[in-house]
């Protein structure tokens, strides 16, 4: 009970923070407050835009984690799935450079999602069929992705073009908010939509109910005739696809090219966002936004040159914030009770 109450206060706090941020953003960008360098660094449209762009791969990664863990499979391999997705997206984009840009990019996204799904399926197979410790299985995914992408990466290949902003008519004209939220490339919209979709699916559909039961009490699910491991396979594969999409975003929408190790820990930060967000899609969005904002801040601080601290220390910010967030909140959130454990039916035991 006390846990529920704590969670309520923390969601109120995050709501207040969000509202405060919006108010500050509007004030700073529409009034003379924009003259203040510090305020511009913290709340300028550029900072917010950058924050959103940094948030997208994190929230997709966190949704990947939620999909897997709600069904009972721990997925620390998000980093590897993302990297594999990014690489596949890049390879297919390069191979289809001659196609019309939209189609070529779509093909890239499809490849990213597919390869992510394959990695998810591999993770599920290792941890369910072969009963490998799930954290070790996730580690294998990471090493495998790093190894394969390095081995196959053709450093001379160039992807031509990336997704560009598609302003939403009308909404994008809203001052400040419109610029930040409704003037984005397609995958950003998709990520935000997926948050809503996953929330509804998880809490208001048969699939969601069964998924949660598998993650909380697989035996209970089994005794009412639910095939626990089938749900775990399905969800881990879907989770892999989500992480693959995050990788696709990095290559096809954010950067435009592939670089070795370009995920740079984002998969791990999204795990932290998932924990921090209490395994809830909207919670994950909030947490990802916080981490994304930190990354944006890092950039803005470096650009504005307002602090006299070596850039190395400013670059530590997202990682340190992640540690602090995970340390401060982990005792107050509640992971799916059965995650990480192999489920065996009575008959196979």
């Amino acid at each position: 009970m006390s846990r529920k109450r704590v969670w309520k206060t923390s969601s109120i706090v995050s709501m207040v923070l969000a509202v405060g941020l919006v108010v500050m953003a509007i004030l700073v960008n529409t009034t003379s407050l924009s003259q203040q360098t510090w305020l511009r660094v913290l709340f300028g449209v550029s900072a917010l835009n950058f924050a959103l762009r940094a948030t997208v791969p994190l929230v997709l990664g966190a949704l990947s984690g939620i999909l897997c863990e709600r069904s009972g499979i721990i997925n620390i391999g998000i980093e590897g799935m993302m990297l594999a997705g990014a690489f596949a997206g890049f390879v297919v984009k390069v191979a289809t450079n001659s196609w019309p840009l939209g189609m070529s990019l779509m093909a890239g996204v499809l490849a990213a999602v597919l390869i992510g799904g394959v990695m998810g399926l591999l993770h599920a197979t290792l941890s369910i069929r072969y009963r490998m410790d799930q954290i070790i299985s996730g580690t294998i995914i990471i090493i495998l992705a790093a190894g394969f992408t390095a081995y196959l990466f053709d450093r001379d290949a160039v992807a031509e073009g990336k997704f560009v902003a598609m302003p939403i008519p009308g909404l994008s004209k809203i001052p400040v908010l419109g610029e930040v939220l409704f003037n984005n490339p397609p995958l950003t919209y998709l990520a935000l939509i997926l948050v809503v979709v996953l929330h509804v699916a998880l809490f208001h559909t048969r699939w969601g109910l069964r998924t949660r039961a598998c993650g909380e009490h697989p035996r209970a699910a089994d005794t009412v005739g639910i095939n626990v491991n089938r749900y775990r396979y399905m969800n881990t594969t879907l989770g892999g696809m989500m992480a693959g999409l995050a990788g696709g975003f990095l290559v096809l929408e954010a950067v435009g090219q592939f670089q070795e190790g370009m995920t740079a820990g984002r998969g791990f930060i999204s795990l932290a966002a998932m924990i921090f967000g209490n395994w809830m899609p909207f919670g994950a969005l909030g947490a990802s936004a916080l981490f994304g904002y930190t990354q944006a801040l890092q950039n803005e601080l470096l650009l504005a040159g307002v602090v006299n601290v070596p850039r190395h220390f400013i670059s530590m910010l997202p990682y340190v914030v992640t540690i602090v967030a995970v340390s401060g909140f982990v005792g107050r959130v509640r992971p799916p009770a059965a995650e990480g454990k192999v489920y065996e039916t009575e008959s196979s035991a």
């Binding site: 109910l209 069964r210 039961a213 909380e216 209970a220 639910i226 509640r334 009770a337």
Partner: peptide
Amino acid sequence: FQLVPVMTVAENVMLGSEAV
């Protein structure tokens, strides 16, 4: 008991034979 503690009675009752 094969009940999921964090779910409501209704959710537990329908699990596996959901009304949709």
